[in-house]
Amino acid sequence: MQYLAPTTVEEAVSALAAHSGDCRLLAGGTDLLVRMRSDMADPDAVIDLKRIDALRQINPEDGGWRVGAAVSGAEMGEHEGLVADWPGVVEATNLIGSTQVQGRCTMAGNLCNASPAADSVPAMVAAGAVARVVGPDGTRVVPVEEIPTGPGTTSLAKGELIDAIILPERGARSSDAYLRFIPRTEMDIAVVGCAVSLTLDEDGTCTAARVSLGAVAPTVLLVPEAADALIGTKVDDTALDALAAACSAAAKPIDDKRGTVDFRVHVAGVLAKRAAKIAKKRAGGAA
């Protein structure tokens, strides 16, 4: 197995594009190394992205934030500006794995692993985050919900990598929240995940919202009907019930070892209500 540690994005892209075999990108490695150790992956080459300085940084961009693809969950959790603007995205990323895993795992890696249960992805989708994709033919910007195409598969072309996730500018009276259901209290994988991002006006009426569900379909879902249930309301009990109903209706889960269809459909609604209440409170709305 070949191990490459480029120091620029260009080098990484050309190595990735040039390799003819099974070539994998290593950011935190918290998925890749586990797969390799459990005989689920046997790559011919691994390209380590952590030596690329630009990928280790969190920088302001257009009023929002550009989070490099190799920034760890722990680094995000310690970034005051990011936490203030996007607490839901940070809390979702900080739920990945354990304290030890947080020192390595990355949001971009979580996205490219393309698990429908990935914790940071619903939060990024609700936030309206975009991925900056660099490839042999240049750079493009793609909404994060368009990156995974199914469990374990992505829309990235040969030679392409994500070098940063860009979170948009966070306006006034706006916030987000992410909740997941797990049978334990940590070290677990979402049976259902839900992220809500919303903006309130001065009266506390919701003027904008995005709602996203994880682990209830082959990819993370953006649920416009759920957002519509909130927009124009004071995010009161009636609106929350409508939100829950929209989320349950949008959920298209399967029965598996982690949960049943009935359970996931119901809990999608429960989590949506709870997440919306948290987001509302964070945005300065009345309880």
Binding site: P183, R184, T185, E186, D188, K257, R258
Partner: peptide, 14 residues
Amino acid sequence: QNAGFLDYRIPVAS
């Protein structure tokens, strides 16, 4: 279906 500690859930400290 669950030959690993992710889906064979022993209690964790928390």
